[in-house]
Simulated assay, not measured.
Amino acid sequence: MSEETENLTIRLLQEMRAQIERTNMRIEEMTDQITDLVQRIDGNTLVFNLVAGVVHDHEDRIVTLEGGRS
């Protein structure tokens, strides 16, 4: 009886370890995906800021041109 209990305990501990390893692998995959997402967001932020700067510059030039014609 005692040996069966020990075998059961060992088997349950092995199953728990396997489950933890699978969970850790999923967490690593999610971490990689989040890192990729953050990099994309940073790139989009840079592009949006550049576009906003160009638009602002164009607006200033248009106001100057329109003001010069009045």
Rank of each mutant, 00 (worst) to 15 (best):
E59A: 05
E15C: 00
R69G: 01
R26D: 11
E3F: 02
E66W: 03
D57Q: 12
A18H: 04
L8Y: 08
G53E: 08
E59T: 11
T9G: 00
I34V: 13
E28Q: 12
S2V: 09
F48P: 03
L8V: 04
M16C: 12
R40V: 12
A52D: 06
L65R: 05
Q39W: 00
V47W: 01
E6Q: 09
I41S: 01
L46E: 14
E28C: 07
T45K: 08
A52T: 05
L12H: 01
Q14Y: 06
R26C: 03
M25P: 04
A52W: 02
T64L: 12
G43W: 05
V38P: 06
V51W: 00
D42Y: 08
E21D: 14
E21C: 04
Q19C: 05
L13H: 00
I27D: 03
V51F: 06
D32H: 11
R22P: 05
V51L: 13
I41D: 01
E15W: 01
F48H: 09
D42R: 07
M1A: 14
R69V: 15
M25K: 15
I20E: 15
R40A: 10
N24P: 02
N7V: 02
R26S: 07
R40Y: 15
Q14A: 13
N24Y: 06
G67E: 03
N44T: 11
G68T: 08
T45D: 12
A52C: 02
E15P: 00
T5D: 11
D32K: 09
R11V: 00
L46C: 06
